[in-house]
Design a protein around this nucleic acid. Structure first.
Length: 545
DNA sequence: GTAGGGTTAG
């Protein structure tokens, strides 16, 4: 391709730079670096236009070593005072997560423009240093632009800070970027991540222009907010609007189908993906396998899994988890072994499926062995859900002493599910002393999720503790947490049925299913709010009020 | 006529 270059020295750099640029923006950015090396070997002398492009390629492939080599060449050739080259370097260090490198360069620069600031901020945000990102933003001495706000809004979303997010939203208006499509999308995403779906919908309704990212943000937000039915309504509206979904959108739609049990809808998504030639990746594969499993079709889940061309741990987890909820303990263990054999490393979710499988199939020894291997061999710390599985496993086998011992050894406080499992085992095995002890402990549990109180009240009711049942109900009323009953929608013969907590039309089993969904949400919410917000609050006081 | 920053998911 560049053989002709060897024959005479190059005086016009433009065609070569253009060539490298086209490689850099292809989906194989490493070819830009190869092209650079070949032309330089042929006598080409790079100029100030060449380096930003090759640095961009280094960033894309996370080529820290290559980028640092270019940095050396830039200094040697005397281009280190060119603004575009400096910005290219800052961007490269930022993308590679080297905030020290980008910060040092930034400090040394005498002239900085908005791209310089944006590159630095996005690096800090990417590295998870959100507060530092906010501080840099607040020190900007040039006007921010759309790209600035996108990075800052990403930081607000990752922090889950509604207060700061709303403040930045105000700044967006003040600076006149409210009609920018990317800023609008970043705002929607920020509100979704701050769990303010109403605000997200408001922005969505008000923006002048929508693309598939806008739709995907709102759909995935609704799915994560356990509002799958509305997510599908938005997806229908998206199609009417003529905006084509991509695999990101469809992953969320499949997740909505999974939580609604909407098998036919899910199958339609499967056909759509094949019809449109949308590329399968491990994640869309995960969503599809999960959808089939949760919709009750173990066979379609297995067939789909086998047909997925590229799988990763998430895809495997979907299969193992799907088999586990159907109670196929031995199959889970066989596939787990197969997964290990081909060198896929398990994670915490994998072990949840494995332990669940052991629990449902009564494989006590195997469950204990896997629980031990989890930390010993794979260096994974068991979380409360893993302990929950083990307690359940031991209780079902009548090993009450061992279950209690495990609860005592836990580094965290047992939750209502763990104590509930132990309590029902005590009832089966007629152990009144332990029961009394557990009932005492249950009274100490405090939280704001109505699901936990429903479980508690059911436990009290089945132990004839009617005063406690009444006490829990009063407490719920006082806290006003029974205003939003959880619900679950199930598709039967193409019709959807909605189950609401406290609804007597459906069986107790259905209600337990609903409650378990809500408990999962509770755990999720708690994890989300465990960030340290003190320095953020400080930022809020200083800059936004 | 060439160059740098930005949005969606697990």
């Amino acid at each position: 391709m560049v053989e002709f270059l060897a024959k005479k020295p190059i005086t016009n750099t433009f065609p070569v730079n253009s060539l490298i640029t086209s490689y850099a923006s292809s989906n194989t950015p490493e070819t830009a670096i190869l092209a650079y090396k070949r032309v330089v070997q042929s006598g080409f002398s790079p100029d100030m236009y060449t380096f930003p492009v090759v640095l961009k390629s280094c960033g894309k492939i996370s080529g820290i070593r290559e980028g640092k080599q270019f940095h050396g060449v830039i200094v040697k050739m005397g281009f280190s005072n060119e603004l575009y080259v400096q910005n290219g370097l800052i961007h490269f260090y930022s993308v590679c997560g080297e905030c020290d490198g980008s910060g040092r360069l930034f400090d040394e620069m005498s002239v900085r423009d908005v791209v310089t600031w944006n590159s630095l901020i996005s690096g800090y945000v990417r590295a998870g240093l959100f507060n530092a990102g906010f501080v840099i933003f607040s020190k900007m001495d040039v006007n921010p632009n759309a790209a600035t706000f996108v990075s800052v809004l990403v930081a607000c979303g990752r922090l889950g800070s509604f207060g700061i997010g709303r403040g930045v939203h105000g700044l967006v208006f003040k600076c006149g970027f409210e009609s920018s499509l990317v800023v609008g999308n970043a705002l929607i995403d920020m509100y979704v991540k701050c769990l303010s779906l109403d605000e997200a919908k408001k922005v969505f309704d008000e923006i002048s222009e929508r693309d598939k990212v806008s739709w995907t943000c709102i759909i995935s937000g609704l799915v994560q907010g356990k509002n799958a039915k509305e997510a599908l309504e938005y997806f229908n509206a998206m199609q009417k609007s003529g905006t084509e979904p991509d695999k990101v959108t469809l992953s969320s739609v499949l997740s909505a189908c999974a939580s609604l049990g909407a098998l036919e809808y899910g199958k339609w998504v499967h056909e759509y993906i094949n019809r449109k030639g949308i590329e399968w990746d491990p994640y869309i594969g995960m969503a599809m396998v999960d959808m089939y499993a949760k919709c009750g079709s173990k066979e379609l889940a297995s067939i789909t899994f086998r047909g997925i061309p590229c799988k990763n741990i998430y895809t495997w987890n979907a299969l193992l988890g799907g088999l586990a909820i159907h109670g196929h303990g031995n199959e889970v263990l066989l596939h787990f072994q197969e997964m290990l054999d081909i060198g896929t490393k398990p994670n915490g979710v994998t072990f949840l499926a494995v332990l669940n499988a052991c629990c449902h199939s009564g494989l006590v020894d195997e469950g204990c062995r896997q629980f031990n291997e989890m930390s010993r061999v794979y260096n994974l710390t068991p979380k409360i859900k893993h302990y929950g599985c083990m307690v359940d496993l031991l209780c079902r086998a009548g090993l009450l002493e061992e279950a209690q011992e495990l609860i005592r050894s836990m580094p965290m406080k047992p939750d209502v599910l763990i104590l509930g499992a132990l309590l029902s085992a005590c009832k089966v095995h007629g152990n009144a002393d332990i029961s009394k002890n557990i009932l005492g402990k249950l009274g100490e549990l405090e939280c704001d999720d109505s699901g936990v109180y429903v479980v508690l009240s059911n436990i009290y009711a089945s132990n004839d503790k009617w005063e406690d049942v009444e006490r829990v109900r009063r407490l719920m009323k006082k806290k006003g947490i029974n205003k939003f009953p959880g619900s679950s929608v199930v598709e039967v013969d193409g019709k959807t049925h909605e189950f609401v907590v406290g609804d007597n039309k459906h069986s107790q089993q259905e209600e337990v299913y609903v409650v378990l969904n809500m408990l999962t949400k509770h755990v999720f919410l708690r994890q989300e709010s465990e960030y340290n917000m003190s320095s953020t609050d400080e930022f809020e006081r200083k800059f936004l009020h």
